[in-house]
Amino acid sequence: MKNNLNKGILCAAVAISIASCGNPNSETVEQDATSNTTEVKTEKQGQAFIKDDESQPTVLDIAIGSPDHSTLVAAVQAAQLENALVNAGPLMVFAPINAAFEALPAGTVENLLKPENKEQLAQILKHHVTAGNYSKDFLKKFKKLGQASDLSVKVEVVGDEVFIGGAKIIASVEAGNGIVHVVDKVILPEN
C-alpha cells in the first residue's frame, strides 16, 4: 500500500514536471503579450497562483501532484480553499486518499461538490487541517488537535500507528508550508 501510494505520488510529480498540466499560465502569458492586462489579472488571484519553481512545494502542490488525491483536490477547488492552503500557516493537512472518499455512502461526494453545498464542503475540508507542523512521531504527544473547522479531533496511538479522528496516517510528506499526512479515511466532524 505504502509503496504503491508513494510511487503514485512520484509518478505524478514526474508527469507534472514534463507536462506542466493543461494550465492557464501559458495562455495568460500570451494574453499579456497582446496587451489586455485587465483580463490577465483576473486569471490569478492569490498566493495559490504564484509561479514559483524554486520553493519547496506547499501542502496544496503536494496534494495536486498525487493521483491518489484527485478527489481531495477537486473538493478543495470546489470549496475554493486553495489560497488558504498555500498560506505561511504552518499547516498540517490530513489528506484522505481517493479510496477514503469512495468508502463514504454512495452519492456523498457528488452531493458535497454541488455549488450550493460549498460551505458544508469547506467545513469538512477544514476539519482535515491543523495550524501546526508535527511529524507522525511527534503527534504521539497529543491527545487532541484543534482543527481549522473550530472543532477538535482525537489523536490515538495504537502500537506504532497514529490515528487522527479515527483515520490512520499511512504516509507523510513535508511541505514548504507544513506537512501532509496521508490518511486512509475521511475525518467527519462528530456532530
Binding site: Q56, P57, E82
Partner: peptide, 14 residues
Amino acid sequence: ALVGTAISCSNSES
C-alpha cells in the same frame, strides 16, 4: 515534487 512545482494548474477564480 520539488522538480514539479511550477504546477499551480488549479482553477483560477477565487
